[in-house]
């Protein structure tokens, strides 16, 4: 009898815990998704429903006109291509420069490597607003304004610290025996890196590359400052500058549509690579 009572008590304790858990899950999911879903809904509403009072939550009419407008009245396809171009090239550059550097900092005992690592850690904390003034002078001095390089080079640099830290934590886990064996077989360092280490590094490169792509795609202040020609703008800047004919005529529908198009590639990346993103972020932040 006593055991039965204990069991029911235990059961109800589990139930309360379960209920709290599910309530918090519902809250978490709705807090994180609601703003995005609201933007999706807005982008599909007709103008009359967007500016209806009280707010329309379940529209009966849907339209793609806001999306079409972005492509008909704006070079929106160019904005997407610009963002993709700059993000992909800077990601490749970053991996090419960052992984060898990470390898050198892990395996080849260089004098002063601790100071270099500390420096790399500190610069990850610099807000970009501290950098744009000095970079603007360089961009002006060598005539890089409205040139993709004015974005590609800074984006490579802002992602280098993370790349070096993530790749370094990967190299630290890599067994050294293979490299030692390769050396005994007479491999020189560079061919050994290319033929033996690089193939094993691919998964870590993909993880790092996803993170650097996201950061480059999302960057705002450099893109805002160094690129003024409309056809060369990236998605975040172009979306933020979607204005109406007058100050009071804000095109909410097209802005919502642009938000969805600009975030869609990233949402897809997260859905596909959630695990890798988490791994990379924790390796980058915690190991450092």
């Amino acid at each position: 009898m006593a055991t039965l009572r204990d069991r029911t008590k235990e059961k109800s304790a589990i139930n309360t815990k379960q209920i709290i858990l599910w309530i918090s899950l519902v809250l978490i999911v709705s807090f994180f998704l609601a703003p995005i879903l609201w933007q999706v809904l807005t982008s599909l509403k007709v103008n009359a429903d967007i500016s209806a009072i009280p707010t329309v939550y379940f529209p009966t009419r849907f339209t793609f006109s806001h999306y079409l407008e972005l492509f008909a009245r704006r070079p929106f396809i160019l904005y997407i291509l610009n963002s993709a171009l700059v993000a992909i090239i800077s990601t490749l550059l970053c991996l090419t420069l960052g992984s060898p550097a990470a390898y050198a900092l892990t395996r080849l005992k260089l004098p002063g490597e601790n100071i270099i690592l500390a420096g790399i850690l500190i610069v990850t904390l610099f807000p970009y607003v501290l950098l744009f003034l000095g970079l603007l002078e360089i961009v002006k001095a060598i005539g890089l304004g409205n040139n993709y390089l004015a974005l590609i080079i800074p984006y490579t640099a802002i992602n280098l610290p993370l790349t070096i830290l993530v790749m370094r934590s990967f190299f630290q886990q890599l067994p050294k025996d293979l490299e030692d064996a390769a050396k005994i077989d007479g491999y020189k360092i560079i061919p050994m890196l290319l033929r033996i280490v690089l193939p094993m590094t691919l998964p870590a490169l993909v993880t790092t590359g996803i993170l650097t792509f996201i950061f480059a795609w999302n960057e705002y202040i450099f893109a805002l400052t160094f690129i003024t020609r409309d056809t060369m703008k990236t998605i975040p800047v172009a979306t933020a500058q979607l204005g109406g004919a007058t100050l009071f005529d804000i095109p909410y529908g097209p802005i919502a549509a642009a938000t969805i198009l600009g975030t869609l590639p990233l949402v897809i990346l997260v859905l596909l690579f959630q695990r890798r993103i988490v791994q990379g972020l924790t390796a980058g932040a915690v190991k450092g």
Binding site: I28, V29, F32, L33, P35, I36, W38, Q39, T42, I50, S51, A52, I53, T55, I214, W217, N218, Y220, I235, P236, V237, T239, A240, Y252, I255, A256, A258, T259, G262, T263, L266, V267, L269, V270, L271, Q274, I277, V278
Partner: peptide, 27 residues
């Protein structure tokens, strides 16, 4: 867990617009 990292991955400038719309005074 996947849903809980989506906001982190999105461009701040773009989602700032979404929030400005959410807090819009009229609509």
């Amino acid at each position: 867990r996947t849903i809980a990292i989506i906001p982190w991955a999105l461009p701040t400038a773009v989602m700032g617009l979404a929030w400005a719309w959410i807090f819009n005074d009229q609509y």
